[in-house]
Amino acid sequence: MRAEHDHGHNHPVNFDPTVAEPDPFEPASAGDRPLRIGLGGPVGSGKTALTAALCRTLGAEIELGVVTNDIYTTEDADFLIKAGVLDADRIEAVQTGACPHTAIRDDITANLDAVERLQQRHPGVRLVLVESGGDNLTAVFSRGLADAQVFVVDVAGGDKVPRKGGPGVTTADLLVINKIDLAERVGADMEVMLSDAHRMRGELPVIAQSLTDTPRAPEVAAWVRQRLAAGAPAR
């Protein structure tokens, strides 16, 4: 969306918010701190289940922690603890003042404080998953908080969701279409969903998955490993 380049000509500025373009900013990740990955998406799309799956898969490989922004914070934390994927002291809950998108985007103070508390308790932590509260299609993480972000939608939310666009679908570093095992039952056309997603996102990756069929979220875990290799600050 840049209007001016250093190669001698101008591009027209595109004001269509649904046009897919990679985030033009360098990730904030630098120095001696854990990689922070944001997981956002609408209510009930499976963010917590994906977080749990990633903890299960990656927990044995790398020291990690979770910050959860769900309004029913204790519930999400309880889910992770009961699932046996993470010790309670590796989970930090954030109160968002009834504005989950503000807490991950406009004013990230409470989330940064939570990440700091995790780091103080566990100085060796190398990966922090920041799970947003369920929100709308415009909610994205500030680059000051998340080095990379995953937007999670599900087939039960309707197969038109990718087509609707919005910054979550179009700009997230990874789009996950969840619960594909339910596609037939809810009448969602997977082909349409996937082709819409790719059309909206251009080169950016899309993963369709079902945690019922593949409970360890292998493809998303592989993507996180790539991010860790590319962006994890040296230690």
């Binding site: 954030v94 968002t96 003042g97 504005c99 807490a103 406009d106 004013d107 990230i108 409470a110």
Partner: peptide, 11 residues
Amino acid sequence: ARFPGGGHVHS
């Protein structure tokens, strides 16, 4: 209120 100092989570 838009100052990003964390005030929005306090009532």
